[in-house]
Amino acid sequence: MSRSLIDIRDLSTTEIEELIRTAEDIIADPKKYSEICHGKKLATLFFEPSTRTRLSFEAAMYELGGQVLSMSNAASSSAAKGESVADTAKTVSCYADIIAMRHPKEGAPLVAAMNASIPVINAGDGGHNHPTQTLADLCTISREKGRLDNLTVGLCGDLKFGRTVHSLIEALSRYTGIKFVLISPVELKLPSYVKKDVIQAHGLEYSQTTDLEAVMPELDILYMTRVQRERFFNEEDYLRLKDSYILTPEKLKGAKDDLCIMHPLPRVNEISVAIDDDPRACYFKQVLNGKYMRMALIMKLLEIEV
């Protein structure tokens, strides 16, 4: 079985730091990497609508000089005819060198990795994992703050279903001196097993609040999230909770000058556009860093060295 990335815990902190270093080197000298994946093919298997993640993977492969095989949409795929994930993975292994898979069912990319003969990257499996988003987040924190330890990290919005939040907590919990500030409506609180099995298991501090402005002055990082309609079984609950937190310039008044405002995007209205020109807004940098980290990851899993 090839090495795959299904969960951020599949990578050690040393490997994550190596990926960040590779990403920084790509940023410094993109030409050095522009043909490094020549002759290699990435298959993007997206069984759930996604624009940015798929485009990010495809841009990453093209910028490495590789090629991309892609299906136009999930409705026209063999999965719509009832093909299993295992069979799809075995079939695509005959065509491509690496797979990036998004699937609405949790665990589908793991099934693909168990059956493919090529590396599989989880590009999001329902509300479960999205490790390349976490790589983008870690790269952004590292580049903006110069470190991944000793930070007070505010996580705001949907902490219950937000997979990016859970993965980021998993990843940052392996560093020392991290303090999490969990800001959410009561109904969307971080699940207790994440608090117990991850944050407390690593001996880290956390606090919980519903009041974003009250905790703003202590934050080094503010990670905003969207309340996602597709994670709710009940439309009423979604409508009631979707506008719980909207970040505006007024709410930033007490914030540190070097606060780093992040969001996995797409945003709906959680961050006012008036904040986009604030130097503390890092969410579009996150998008760019995501592409560089995906480039570094593709190289790593294909075992290509410069």
Partner: peptide, 12 residues
């Protein structure tokens, strides 16, 4: 878990 892949691929 109805969101789990095993809910739709029962041969797993």
């Amino acid at each position: 878990n109805p969101r789990c892949i095993t809910s739709t691929e029962q041969e797993l």
